[in-house]
Amino acid sequence: ENVVSAPMPGKVLRVLVRVGDRVRVGQGLLVLEAMKMENEIPSPRDGVVKRILVKEGEIDDTGQPLIELG
């Protein structure tokens, strides 16, 4: 899985990584606010952040691509 998608609709509060960062499975990639709760979205695998497809403050839909890993 190279693309991390939104598991729920919500607002992107914080992006915790930058392009080029090495990430490990379970590491937080970004924080979504949904139903007044903050949810940290973890990396599904080890890899390198290739692209960040959303910006802080954006509203996303379920299934929307958020981050691409390489």
Score class of each variant (00 low, 15 high):
53 L>I: 09
13 L>R: 05
44 P>E: 04
20 G>F: 05
67 I>D: 01
30 L>F: 08
5 S>M: 13
22 R>K: 12
16 L>R: 02
34 A>W: 15
15 V>E: 01
29 L>H: 00
36 K>C: 15
7 P>E: 06
3 V>N: 06
45 R>N: 06
62 T>S: 10
38 E>I: 12
23 V>F: 03
29 L>I: 07
27 Q>V: 05
60 D>W: 15
46 D>T: 07
35 M>G: 14
33 E>Y: 15
31 V>R: 03
8 M>R: 09
13 L>H: 03
62 T>C: 11
45 R>T: 10
14 R>E: 05
29 L>K: 00
2 N>K: 09
66 L>D: 00
10 G>M: 05
61 D>F: 15
14 R>T: 07
68 E>T: 09
39 N>S: 11
52 I>T: 01
12 V>E: 00
43 S>I: 02
4 V>C: 06
57 G>K: 04
43 S>Y: 03
23 V>S: 01
17 V>R: 00
31 V>E: 00
44 P>R: 04
26 G>M: 04
5 S>E: 08
56 E>R: 08
12 V>Y: 01
37 M>G: 12
44 P>W: 04
59 I>N: 09
30 L>K: 00
23 V>C: 04
67 I>M: 11
13 L>D: 02
54 V>Y: 05
42 P>E: 08
29 L>V: 06
10 G>Q: 03
38 E>G: 05
59 I>T: 10
30 L>I: 13
25 V>F: 12
28 G>A: 14
47 G>E: 02
59 I>V: 12
27 Q>C: 05
17 V>N: 00
66 L>E: 00
64 Q>M: 12
46 D>M: 06
18 R>I: 08
32 L>Y: 15
31 V>K: 03
19 V>A: 07
53 L>N: 05
56 E>G: 08
3 V>C: 13
20 G>C: 12
7 P>H: 08
36 K>G: 15
62 T>M: 13
8 M>L: 09
6 A>F: 09
31 V>Q: 02
70 G>T: 14
27 Q>E: 07
32 L>P: 00
6 A>I: 05
19 V>I: 10
7 P>M: 08
49 V>P: 03
61 D>A: 13
45 R>G: 05
59 I>R: 08
19 V>Q: 07
30 L>Y: 05
10 G>A: 06
12 V>W: 00
68 E>L: 14
4 V>K: 04
37 M>C: 11
13 L>M: 08
42 P>R: 14
51 R>V: 09
36 K>M: 14
54 V>R: 04
43 S>F: 02
12 V>K: 00
35 M>Y: 13
35 M>S: 11
8 M>D: 02
58 E>R: 10
29 L>E: 00
22 R>V: 12
5 S>F: 15
9 P>L: 09
32 L>W: 11
43 S>P: 03
2 N>Q: 10
41 I>E: 01
49 V>N: 00
62 T>L: 13
19 V>K: 07
11 K>W: 07
58 E>H: 10
41 I>G: 01
59 I>P: 06
64 Q>N: 08
45 R>V: 14
5 S>W: 14
70 G>V: 14
45 R>F: 13
56 E>W: 08
11 K>R: 13
10 G>T: 04
39 N>E: 10
55 K>H: 12
50 K>P: 00
2 N>Y: 15
61 D>L: 13
52 I>H: 02
9 P>Q: 11
34 A>L: 11
21 D>E: 13
55 K>W: 13
56 E>Y: 09
40 E>G: 04
48 V>D: 03
26 G>Y: 06
17 V>S: 00
64 Q>T: 14
13 L>E: 03
44 P>F: 05
8 M>K: 07
28 G>C: 15
68 E>H: 09
32 L>K: 01
25 V>L: 12
4 V>W: 03
48 V>L: 08
3 V>S: 07
27 Q>L: 04
32 L>V: 10
12 V>T: 03
64 Q>P: 03
54 V>L: 06
43 S>V: 01
35 M>T: 07
57 G>R: 04
11 K>T: 10
16 L>V: 04
69 L>K: 01
44 P>I: 05
63 G>F: 07
14 R>S: 05
5 S>P: 08
1 E>L: 14
2 N>M: 14
70 G>W: 15
25 V>K: 15
56 E>D: 08
49 V>K: 00
8 M>P: 04
23 V>Q: 01
33 E>D: 07
45 R>Q: 09
52 I>G: 02
67 I>R: 01
54 V>D: 01
60 D>G: 15
57 G>P: 04
24 R>L: 09
2 N>S: 13
37 M>W: 07
42 P>W: 08
7 P>K: 09
59 I>W: 15
29 L>Y: 02
34 A>G: 10
43 S>M: 02
23 V>A: 02
14 R>P: 02
36 K>S: 14
58 E>V: 11
47 G>H: 02
38 E>D: 06
61 D>P: 08
21 D>F: 07
18 R>V: 10
43 S>H: 01
68 E>R: 05
1 E>G: 12
51 R>T: 09
38 E>Q: 11
19 V>M: 05
